[in-house]
Design a protein around this nucleic acid. Structure first.
Length: 542
RNA sequence: GCCCCGAUAGCUCAACUGGAUAGAGCAACGGUCUUCUAAACCGUAGGUUUUGGGUUCGAUUCCCGAUCGGGGUACCA
């Protein structure tokens, strides 16, 4: 409906020669202002040199005649045009929704895109923390949103199991392994102190007994630790129903010569120079405040170089769109990567960064400072144990990505009974129960029910919200933020609960019951679908 | 110093590309179960949208300055 009006306005503007004019067609906050409203007249006023109120009146009489399901138009000062629809419009949505199912309001795809979403990408040095959890759920859900539109999604995890941190991990495991056999061995300075290190050491001891004593440099410790930690990480993600399609190891970039290729290209294009024994990238040429080192004077590349090579590979792999998730602490890298890609004449506009702010954790009213190395973190697993996967997913998504997320552990635990996610699930369970109840009452079928009997304000309100679903999905995709879908579901559930409290579905009036059962099935369908996109379960019974 | 995010009810946060009387949840107070699940519903109270300017028919939203908080500004990742 909103699209029909938008289109009509656009055609009109084209005819009149005002193609570029930007106007809005929106759903006003107050029902008194109509189901849909436009500011068109106020935008036209300066061009036509006329009073917007007068323009609005004229448009209402001409442009906006013969609109299907239109009940009335109102023109309000200073020049809003407000549209009110007939109940028949909302009733028709029930049939439409039941026919389309999960495809309800899904737009025709102009082009099926190959989209890569890269997220988590934590090096395997320890269990995932609450901070990683936010990125995991956010990335996965963004993928689900694009999947709904019909795009092809690759979920990717980029990691590096070489380097200093991993060596420290190996040495930490080694020390614990020695301890198990009663030998003195100190954790290295900056070593990893978590209990999981001891568990890994035990696994090694179980498997090979004392075979590796006194071999601190044996790569077995690092390799075994990396593999163990990776399993932990995957298990944690699996619990949240998250699976990556591709694990991309930074090592492969070296092995396949991709690092040196990048250096060579940048050098040929004259975007690098040597200074102080290091190789620098002319980042200033692309607007950075200073140039960046790609290869240290030690001959070792900085983190930037593999990042650049990795993103070059992403583009060469043929993705139409690439979405990178990172926390606010890593956002500084991004402009350098983009600049280097541009330097290599690659189309960096395909890459989008989704930067999310930190998760701060409070416990008993106090801030908890988290560090993987010191093991003073709360793991994602602990959080899932505490409140369950559905609540975890929901909580991570219920704040905008660029807002700080404050996770109060004590509160999440204490109040898990009155959690907003249960509000949604409860609505679904109620609907399920109504359908079960109707069968018990002997109503075998209701799909032939007459939707024109659905006339209560509470029902029309729910259907009005349902009519908005497609737009919400588009907003979520455009902004890369599932929070819009969360807010939408809250609104929908609230409207449903209000209806439920005031009207019975199954009653003595068989025809009315059938109509309302159709309505219930329609709402249940859309809630199930939307919750599925968020990766949250819809239990039948609570 | 410079760059990026944020600042909205007591608390945690919404408000779609600038729209009309800024909304939820929690906390507080009062009401509603002999009916399909009260994990719900209804009502009351709670605001100078941090601050000072500017842009315009209209600003929580855009621009400039200030303050506070988080992050970055490495030949760490």
């Amino acid at each position: 409906m909103i699209k029909a009006i938008q289109e009509r306005i656009r055609n009109y503007l084209d005819e009149q020669g005002y193609e570029g004019l930007d106007f809005i067609v929106e759903r006003p906050k107050k029902r008194a202002f109509g189901h849909i409203s436009t500011n068109l007249a106020m935008k036209l006023a300066p061009l036509l040199r006329k009073n917007p109120y007068q323009i609005a009146g004229e448009l209402a009489e001409t442009l906006f005649q013969n609109i299907q399901y239109l009940e009335k138009i109102e023109v309000i000062r200073p020049g809003f045009i407000n549209f009110f629809f007939k109940a028949a419009y909302f009733q028709s949505l029930v049939e439409e929704l039941l026919a389309a199912g999960a495809d309800f309001q899904k737009p025709q795809l102009l082009k099926k895109e190959k989209i890569q979403v890269e997220f988590v990408s934590a090096n395997p040095t320890g269990p995932l923390t609450i901070g990683h959890g936010r990125q995991a759920v956010l990335g996965d859900t963004v993928g689900r949103i694009f999947e709904w539109f019909g795009h092809e999604i690759t979920r990717e995890y980029y990691f590096n199991d070489a380097g200093r941190q991993m060596r420290l991990l190996g040495l930490s495991v080694y020390a614990r392994y020695m301890n198990l056999f009663g030998y003195e061995a100190e954790l290295p300075d900056d070593g990893y102190q978590g209990d999981y290190i001891i568990d890994i050491a035990k696994s090694i001891a179980d498997k090979w007994s004392d075979k590796y004593l006194n071999q601190p440099e044996n790569s077995l410790f690092t390799d075994f630790a990396a593999e163990s930690v990776f399993k932990m990480i995957q298990t944690s993600l699996e619990r949240l129903n998250i699976r990556h399609d591709v694990y991309y190891n930074e090592k492969d970039l070296y092995a396949e010569g991709k690092i040196s290729e990048v250096l060579k290209i940048l050098e040929e294009k004259n975007f690098t120079y040597q200074y102080d024994g290091a190789i620098w990238f002319k980042a200033r040429f692309f607007g950075a405040e200073k140039d960046r080192v790609l290869v240290k004077s030690s001959g070792e590349p900085t983190y930037r170089l593999p990042d650049i090579a990795y993103h070059r590979q992403k583009l060469l792999r043929g993705f139409d769109r690439i979405i990178d998730l990172f926390g606010a602490d890593h956002h500084a890298t991004f402009p350098d990567v983009i600049a280097a890609l541009q330097a290599m004449d690659l189309d960096s506009s395909k890459i989008q960064a989704l930067i999310h702010q930190f998760v701060t954790l409070t416990k008993d009213g106090e801030k908890v400072k988290m560090s993987t190395r010191k093991a003073t973190f709360v793991t994602l697993d602990e959080l899932i144990d505490l409140v369950g996967a559905d609540v975890v997913r929901y909580f991570y998504l219920m704040r905008g990505a660029d807002s700080h997320l404050n996770f109060d552990i004590s509160l999440a635990q204490k109040e898990s009974d009155e959690n907003p996610v249960f509000y949604l699930q409860y609505a679904h369970a109620r609907m399920h129960n109504i359908l079960v109840h109707s069968r018990e009452k002997g109503i075998e079928s209701f799909l032939e029910g007459d939707c024109s009997l659905l006339i209560e304000d509470e029902i029309l309100e729910v259907l009005d919200i349902i009519s908005e679903f497609g737009e919400i999905m588009e907003t979520a995709a455009r902004t890369l933020d599932p929070i819009h879908l969360i807010n939408y579901l809250q609104k929908l559930a609230t409207a449903f609960h209000r209806f439920y409290a005031r009207h019975r579905v199954v009653s003595e009036d068989l025809e009315l019951s059938k109509a309302r059962l159709k309505f219930i099935l329609a709402v249940k369908t859309i809630i199930t679908n939307a919750m599925g996109i968020l990766g949250i379960h819809t239990p039948d019974v609570m």
